[in-house]
Design a protein around this nucleic acid. Structure first.
Lengths: 337, 337
DNA sequence: CCTCGGATTGGAAACGTTTCCAATCGTGCT
DNA sequence: AGCACGATTGGAAACGTTTCCAATCCGAGG
């Protein structure tokens, strides 16, 4: 009585059966008159359907989970945001969990059973066996953002890291750079591997000299981890006139290290980052960056997942998002603004 | 049969009733021998309890929702992260929704009924009537982060914005600043109002001259909205030797505007931000900032909510988190690093 | 050997919804 | 008027779990 109104109380008040009340509210198969009566009864009582009961009956919860490596990295914040926006249009909620270690990712995947969520979006940094197995075992439709190893059955929504690095290199070359350093993230990650590959090929194709001492890898895709890596590069004393960071955070670490050593950017050294996070516009000098389409990837992943949930069996086909170079102050001689 | 195993299949396999199986798994009131048998049956079948069914029966979903103004602002990312960390320890999931307009916030509050979530954390920027009413009406335990108007029944977990601005001003004064500009966010928000108040009092207490032309307000707590505001301040031609941004993003807008006009930071003008986001350490020069305890607020809010859910009626008492000044390059003459 | 009591167990209700199926109603046609 | 058919309705099952309550079991004590 006193408790929150259920469909039974609505039916009662409208003088119809529970079945009819349900149909009336669902807008399906009830006569206009009863429908109206039920609706007004519901409104008077302030009835709100119990989502849990509905989920139990229908087998669908209306919730999608997403597993990201690092919620603090703005690029994932944007990706998550794009997914959320897409899901909201379909009246679904997003659960975001952070997990980067393969074991933690696998555990997170396993934890979300079909009774909790309708679908899953995973952003694995290191697609190890463990993660793949968890994905196989997972009973819910899943979209992967990032690369899967060859064997994977599913498609994945990916950035084209190689092309992205190439954009950066080509741009720097066009600005007159000849010796371009590369500060990578860990090479045991998919992005790390691909960006290194992209760097090597682009350097080669540009006809520049391959020099291993121009390349260094941070222990992590974070600013803190990149600082010592950049220091190491600078300590080598090798000469370079431009630098690409595998990441905006890494590029900022480079800016700092260069500034400490008195090298002006863009005056003495051009710098390009990747991901085109908000940081890039905010910084001084603003950072030229390669937009790898974080938002687009999020949107595509959400779209494919939703299509799959709507019954389109082949919806999760994966996609490759083309990179886009955003030129700012750090790679040009222009005065700020 | 083929479907996912239910407790019925487990009971079947263990040769006991459903009730016994439930008790055995719940670890309560079953004999050790049967408990063992049921557990191994469950393990063999790979049984995973259906969260939805459990939620329907128990009336608890294990989910907490959080409504934040701007997921892209790193300060909220950190706050959310802290909440999530706290909830994970209690085996609960976090749903994050973004809403800034009062109507949207109210709608979001209303949308989460007790059947969806066990508790709610709201971060309202503008605590208007609409939002308060939605909070009143909400049937789930709710913790507010930020200030509520006087009338509010509940406590809230708050930053001490006034004290925070005072820390910044006092620090700047100790560094020799005498004319301190203030770039605020919108004054119709709680933080905006309080920070302005803090600024005025601190200036007065420091024995400095109050000068309304040193104060300007951005339309928003974002970098983009702050740029024109800072330009306006600079166009006034009023002299100042230090500047406080109500926000790190605003402070960065100031850094840019100053740099465009050729004023060196910290050489010609000291700058302090607020929130102590990661940006502050990454930027060059690194930004002195007042940490308003975003993480602490998130943690406290989560703790109080959890305690309340555990039955402690007075758990949601609110709290005030003390600010902390983090001095970096932008407000001192020190060489970077 | 019988009885009592606690420990353990099973049946069944309950949570709130959707949906299948059968029953009823009203209408139009012959 | 009688019949058939579609539209509408109500009863009841089902989703998977927890938990109340009664029944059963077992051992101990008389």
């Amino acid at each position: 009585m006193a408790g929150t109104p259920t469909i039974a109380s609505v039916a009662d008040r409208a003088g119809v059966s529970i079945a009819t009340a349900s149909r009336a509210l669902h807008g399906h198969g009830a006569s206009p008159r009863t429908a109206e009566r039920v609706r007004s009864a519901a409104a008077e009582l302030g009835y709100r359907p119990n989502a849990v009961a509905r989920a139990l009956q229908s087998g669908r919860t209306g919730q999608i989970a997403m597993i990201v490596p690092d919620a603090a990295n703005p690029v994932y914040a944007r990706m998550t945001s794009a997914v959320q926006h897409e899901l909201a249009a379909d009246d679904r909620q997003l659960l975001v969990t952070q997990a980067v270690e393969p074991a933690a990712v696998a555990a997170a995947i396993a934890r979300f059973g079909p009774s909790t969520i309708d679908g899953l979006i995973v952003v694995p940094l290191r697609p190890e066996q463990q993660v793949l197995e968890a994905l196989e075992r997972s009973a819910v439709p899943t979209v992967v953002i990032g690369s899967l190893p060859e064997g994977a059955a599913q498609g994945a929504v990916r950035a084209d890291s190689r092309a992205g690095v190439r954009l950066a290199i080509d741009h720097l070359v066009s600005q007159g750079a000849r010796r371009i350093a590369f500060v990578n993230g860990p090479v045991d990650t998919t992005p790390g591997r691909q960006r290194l590959e992209g760097y090597r090929r682009a350097i080669e194709d540009a006809g520049l000299e391959q020099d291993a001492s121009l390349v260094v890898a941070a222990a992590d895709f974070t600013h803190a981890a990149a600082l010592p890596a950049v220091d190491e590069l600078l300590d080598r004393g090798v000469d370079f006139d431009a630098l690409v960071g595998a990441n905006d955070l890494i590029a900022f670490a480079a800016l700092r290290a260069l500034s400490v050593r008195g090298r002006a950017v863009p005056g003495d050294c051009l710098v390009v980052g990747m991901d085109d996070t908000e940081l890039a516009q905010i910084a001084i000098p603003s950072l030229t960056s390669v937009d790898l389409g974080a938002e687009a990837r999020g949107t595509l992943a959400a779209e494919q997942l939703l299509a799959s949930l709507r019954g389109d069996a082949d919806a999760i086909a994966g996609a490759v998002v083309a990179p886009r170079l955003v030129v700012r102050e750090s790679s040009t001689g222009m005065e700020p603004r």
